[in-house]
Design a binder for these strands. Sequence first.
DNA 1: CGTGAGCTTGACTAGGTTCAAACGGGGTGG
DNA 2: CCACCCCGTTTGAACCTAGTCAAGCTCACG
Lengths: 231, 231
Amino acid sequence: MGLSCQACLARNSALCSAMVGDEIEQLFSIAHRVKVDEGGFLLHEEDPSKYVYNLSSGVCTLERLASDGSRQIMAFVYPGDFIGINSGPFYSVSAQALAPVVACRWHMKDLEGLYPTHPVLERKVHEIASRVLAATMDQLFVLGRKNAVEKIAYFLLYIDGRQQKFDGHSDSFILPMTRIDIADYLGVAVETVSRAFSQLKRRGLIELSQAWVVTLKDREGLRQVVEKTSP
Amino acid sequence: MGLSCQACLARNSALCSAMVGDEIEQLFSIAHRVKVDEGGFLLHEEDPSKYVYNLSSGVCTLERLASDGSRQIMAFVYPGDFIGINSGPFYSVSAQALAPVVACRWHMKDLEGLYPTHPVLERKVHEIASRVLAATMDQLFVLGRKNAVEKIAYFLLYIDGRQQKFDGHSDSFILPMTRIDIADYLGVAVETVSRAFSQLKRRGLIELSQAWVVTLKDREGLRQVVEKTSP
DNA sequence: CGTGAGCTTGACTAGGTTCAAACGGGGTGG
DNA sequence: CCACCCCGTTTGAACCTAGTCAAGCTCACG
């Protein structure tokens, strides 16, 4: 609550970057800071979609649960990501924290109240929505047309891209999600995820010092796996 | 070209319905009418995303092609649907006509030029984008978590929903797409599509007077198949 | 140092793909 | 007008990838 926006991890995220200089305080003045423990929900699919959130720290999933218990993860949400934008009266996805989360919450109405004086803001919000759509289509393509190993290779490059924004350009990163989460993201079984990791390790494309610490030994090789252009 | 908006099949589509009375002529004045033959492309994934389109008649696919020739169809586009909205400088999908298509085309810049005087329009455009995202997430869920028969049942209800808007509430409809298109939409093989159709026919849930003429005998049953709640 | 959750590996199975052949309906040319 | 052909669809059979079930492993934590 007391923290200023200047120090926020998400200060340069798509939404907040729309506001320059002192403008940011206007955005801050209508924001609420929320915290969610690991495993908790930032939002629930059947909740009325009144609020939108900008993640400051932590990681969460965007997921949908079916009546039969099966789960599909739509995206992994990192600091700076914006969630909750939605047509229709309800979120149709839940956001569950993989690690303790801090986020800024706005009443959608309040945010819209700033649109007339800050048209950039509206533009930004919808630019974000389009980018989410593009990412979702990428995933759709992968789920529909790639096999297990290709899916995992895609996943690793996807996560690599997400973390770069904050960790610099190291080849190693920590996976904040379990194998089950990865399986539910790619539409495969946990064991399949595990076997695919092992295969990429055997092929020398990655290294796992521990199960959740990944080193990309050969990004180009991974790209070729995804594109099915490897020997 | 000479046709007025009043007679257009898409007159009540999300975008055009934003303009009431004579306003519609303003929208029309900056529109171009384009026609595309069956098999032709309304837009191509590597084209710069300068234009947006509102489909007046015909049907097309929204698809992405991979280097290895595999194809993923992201959506089937019906009259009244709006396509071409995109973050980034290029469309990242192509739109191919399944039947001769007529559409209204706007230069994105021209459309944005109307925003200041018609804020509803901007709101509408982004409402449309959100709905597309929701539909894409539905499909993602289906691709990731459903088996072949469930996918086909979902597909039939999806198409049923699309056509209702224009054909009233009959239980029969004509599929404008081939089995290959359906396969590429659901991420399965053509033969699998065929077998799933046959199974649903055997179970009495649908009827096929010809390969592309479907009658839904039991919508509720189909819904139960999708939800995995059938006996 | 023991325990347990999460991960890996193995053996078997099932669902979907692939390859191949037959079918059917619409359109063309004799 | 009919025969033929072609394309899209259906069906069959063999194969293979990923799922399932089960056991063993690893590592963080108490």
